[in-house]
């Protein structure tokens, strides 16, 4: 059980990091085979082949980084011909950013003694922030129910549509792979914690 928690901690950290805007460190992570291998171990059923082929095409970090940044910008920030796959929950629940959902999420952060880092210029319902929040909950060994409910209600509730949008619009194999692994992992994760919670309760 302890081992599980460690794995979860790392998994959420990597997911979160990879959904933030790519920087040098992101590229470094991807070019390190062990990190990819770890992702693969988390969800072996999601095919890694395309991503590997794509990654093998890059010799240096710099080129990979720029390619990733362009892809990220096009998919998630401002895209052509219309917004493709914004990473904000509000977009999917109300077509407007910073809707009530974002406020509810910010409240949950506050209840757990977190607040948005102003310097990061993000909205509370950004996928990476949400994943980061779960990571921090695990790190602080906060209640399983809380984690499960948050993941269910505020992440999985919209990432299915996000997943569709990403796979329809991506031009590189990486983000479809990442969202698949993430969604599958999260789905399994809450199933597992459902069982655990049930066990504890009984």
């Amino acid at each position: 059980m302890h081992d599980d928690e460690d794995e979860r901690l790392l998994a959420y950290k990597i997911f979160s990091k990879l959904f933030y805007y790519p920087d040098e460190h992101t590229a470094e992570l991807l070019l390190n085979g062990a990190v990819i291998e770890f992702l693969n171990k988390l969800q072996p059923e999601v095919s890694l082949q395309q991503v590997m082929e794509w990654l093998n095409g890059f010799a240096g970090e710099y080129k990979l980084l720029e390619t990733l940044q362009v892809e990220y910008t096009g998919l998630f920030i401002t895209s052509f011909p219309t917004l493709k796959a914004p990473l904000y929950k509000s977009f999917y629940s109300s077509k407007e950013l910073f809707s009530t959902d974002a406020e509810i999420i910010e409240d949950i952060y506050a209840e757990n003694n977190f607040e948005m880092n102003k310097e990061a210029y993000e909205l509370p319902d950004h996928l990476a922030v949400e994943l980061e929040f779960v990571f921090r909950l695990i790190d602080e060994a906060k209640s399983k129910e809380l984690q499960r409910d948050f993941i269910k209600k505020h992440i999985l509730s919209w990432t299915y549509s996000l997943k569709e949008r990403i796979s329809e619009n991506a031009s590189l194999p990486f983000y479809p792979y990442l969202i698949n692994v993430t969604v599958d992992y999260l789905t399994n994760d809450i199933k597992k914690s459902d069982l655990k919670i049930a066990r504890v309760k009984s």
Partner: peptide, 25 residues
């Protein structure tokens, strides 16, 4: 981690990963 899932090099890398969206208050 060393034992099971992830190689040492990657681990060092990951421990230097910083997430900055949230902060303690």
């Amino acid at each position: 981690l060393k034992r099971t899932t992830i190689a040492t090099g990657a681990l060092t890398l990951l421990s230097s990963t910083k997430l900055k969206g949230l902060q303690k208050r």
